[in-house]
Design a protein around this nucleic acid. Structure first.
Lengths: 232, 232
DNA sequence: GAATGTGAACTCCTTCACAGCA
DNA sequence: TGCTGTGAAGGAGTTCACATTC
C-alpha cells in the first residue's frame, strides 16, 4: 500500500476557492447569454468582484484551461467549473420550517438553478400540513424518511426558529440527508460526515453595525469584513 | 508624519472575531434568560460551536474581563460585547425589494433584535407601492431620501433581483446610507466608505453540492467549509 | 504584445502550550 | 486545582513578481 487512499474525486480545491466558484460560474453564464465566447481574467474578475490574480489562482486549482495572450473560453470554463462543483446532476432540496422565511425560500427563484429544485416542504405543526406553498403541499416532518426515499432528497434547508432547529436537524440526519443549510440562529450538534452551512441574518446586521459604529470608512480598518465595490 | 492616523475608535478587533461576537452574545443572552450568572470559556464555546481557545482569544481583543479559575460574568460580558459591536443604540433598517424574499425578511423576527428595526420597505414597482407588509406601507424607491432623513435609517437591505440591485444600491448610497446587506446575486460597485455584506443563497447550495459530490465525509478534506457539529 | 500560470512573500487566523492568577 | 490570558507555532489564503506561452 504505497500510495494514499484518496477516496475523494476532487483534487484538493481550497475552501476559499470553492466558495468563489459559484460567483464565477454566474458571471460566465451571464457572459455566455450575451454571446461572449472568450473572457480575460481581468474581465471575469471585475464581473465577480475579485482581483484578476485571485481569479487566476482559483482557476489554477481546476487545471490550466486558459490560453496565454487570449483568455478563457467561456463555454469550456462553464463546463469545467460545473463539473468541479458537482453540478452536473439534480440536487433535490427539502425545506423544513414553513414560517415566513421558509415560504419565501420555497418561492425564491435563486433556489431553482443549476439542478437545485425544492421538491418537498415540511413543518412539525400539524396545522400547516396540507397547505400549499409555491405549488407544493406541506408535509409533516415525520414523513421525511419516506420523502427522502421517494424523491432522492440530497440537501435539507432549515428555516425553523432556533428552538426547533436541533430537532429538525436530527430528523434530516435520521432520514439520511448529509448536507444541511441552516438559517436558524443556533449551534447544531451533528454526527461526523454531515456537511453544514450556516446563514445568520442577525449576525450580518451586527457586523454592519460594528463597521458603522467603529467607523470603518475610508481605508477600512477591518480587513475583510466589508468589501467596498470594485469598478465594473 | 511618523505615526499612523488611526481615525477609528475601535481598537483593532480582527474581522474574524467580529463575525463571531454576535453568536457569543446570543449564547450569553440565552444563558442569562436561564438565570446563569457565570460561564466558563468551555461552556460558552460549546454553546457557540467553537473551541474554548478560540473564544478566549476572541474575548481577549475586548480586554480581560474573565476571572481565572472561575469564568466570565454573564451580565458583564453582555455589556462588553454589546458595546464593542456598537449595539447600544437603535439601528433603523430599510428593505428594498418587496418580492418573496423582501416580504419574508420584513416579517422575520430575527431582524427585530438588539436595536434593529425595519422601519421602511420600498420597491421600484408602482404597483406595489401602498401595499401593507408586516404592518408597514410599501413606499416608492424615490421616497428614500425623505425616509432616511425622517427615520434616521442607517442600514439598507437589498432583496431585489440581480438586475435591479445596482440601481437600488445607488439609490441607497445617494440617500446617505453607508451600510448595505445584499441578497442579490450580483457584484455591486460602491463608493469607498460604504460597508457591504453579501448573503448568497445559491452559492451556499453550490458549496454543499461540492461537499457531497467531492465526498467530504469522514475527515472532511476541505478545511473550513463544512462545520460538523460539536457535542453540546 | 497580451494574458495566463505559479513560486514566493506576506498577511491573517487558528491552535497549541503554558504562564498567571483566584 | 481550575480556568483565563497570551506569546509562539502552524496553517491557510491573498497578493506580488515574473517566467511562460500564444
Amino acid at each position: 500500500m504505497p500510495m494514499t487512499p484518496s477516496p475523494s474525486p476532487h483534487r484538493d480545491i481550497p475552501a476559499a476557492t470553492v466558495s468563489r466558484l459559484p460567483t464565477y460560474l454566474r458571471a460566465l453564464h451571464s457572459a455566455a447569454a450575451q454571446g461572449v465566447t472568450t473572457v480575460s481574467s481581468g474581465q471575469l474578475a471585475t464581473a465577480a468582484g475579485v482581483l484578476p490574480t485571485q481569479l487566476r489562482k482559483d482557476l489554477s486549482h481546476l487545471g490550466s484551461h486558459g490560453v496565454r495572450g487570449v483568455g478563457y473560453d467561456v463555454a469550456r470554463l462553464i463546463v469545467e467549473i460545473t463539473s468541479a462543483l458537482g453540478l452536473g446532476r439534480d440536487w433535490p432540496v427539502a425545506i423544513v420550517g414553513m414560517g415566513n422565511l421558509g415560504r419565501a425560500l420555497t418561492a425564491y427563484s435563486g433556489f431553482g438553478t443549476e439542478g437545485f429544485h425544492v421538491v418537498a416542504v415540511l413543518d412539525r405543526d400539524p396545522a400547516l400540513v396540507g397547505e400549499r406553498v409555491a405549488g407544493l403541499t406541506v408535509r409533516h416532518i415525520d414523513e421525511l424518511p419516506t420523502l427522502v426515499a421517494e424523491l432522492g432528497i440530497a440537501i435539507g434547508v432549515l428555516a425553523t426558529p432556533a428552538d426547533g432547529a436541533q430537532a429538525a436537524a436530527d430528523a434530516l440526519v435520521a432520514a439520511g440527508i448529509e448536507a444541511i443549510l441552516t438559517f436558524a440562529p443556533a449551534a447544531l450538534a451533528l454526527p461526523p460526515g454531515v456537511s453544514l452551512r450556516r446563514v445568520d441574518l442577525a449576525t450580518e446586521l451586527h457586523v454592519l453595525a460594528f463597521l458603522r459604529h467603529g467607523g470603518a470608512g475610508i481605508g477600512a480598518s477591518v480587513s475583510d469584513l466589508a468589501k467596498v465595490g470594485v469598478a465594473g
